[in-house]
Amino acid sequence: MQEKDKKDWQPKILAILCNWCSYAGADLAGVSRIQYPPNIRVLRVPCSGRVDPMFIMKSLQNGFDGVLVSGCHPGDCHYLSGNYNARRKFAVLKPLLEYIGIETERVQFSWVSAGEGERFAEVVTKVTNDIRKVGPAKRLVKGVVSW
């Protein structure tokens, strides 16, 4: 990739949000007109427990530069324990992806409640900035794999 392209490059980030907390948090950020980078595409899921690690790996393979998964704070899950189960999955997935050499910034997790519009904006800003720093995804991207 050339320098020039790099300047114009905008990261594409998939935000997988749970229906009950983080999606509502994003909604609140919106109606409160809180500014955050426009780089995320939102995928709404019933619960962070619904997030199959395959979703995350497939997103990277199909060209997303990063994935953010956000759910209810521990103890707040609409389904009582969905986010606890999710947390265990992520606890394995994250170091595993790092281990094979996927930049740690690319896949991030957060808890954002329905009332935390401000926090949602902060999370998205941080993730976007992190991914900007590491640049366009090239590993695990189908057709673009590079060393």
């Binding site: 690690p53 395959m54 790996m57 595993l96 189908k142 794999v145």
Partner: peptide, 10 residues
């Protein structure tokens, strides 16, 4: 390679 890796990771 990416399909293979994702198969194995999965």
């Amino acid at each position: 390679i990416t399909d293979t890796l994702i198969f194995h990771l999965g």
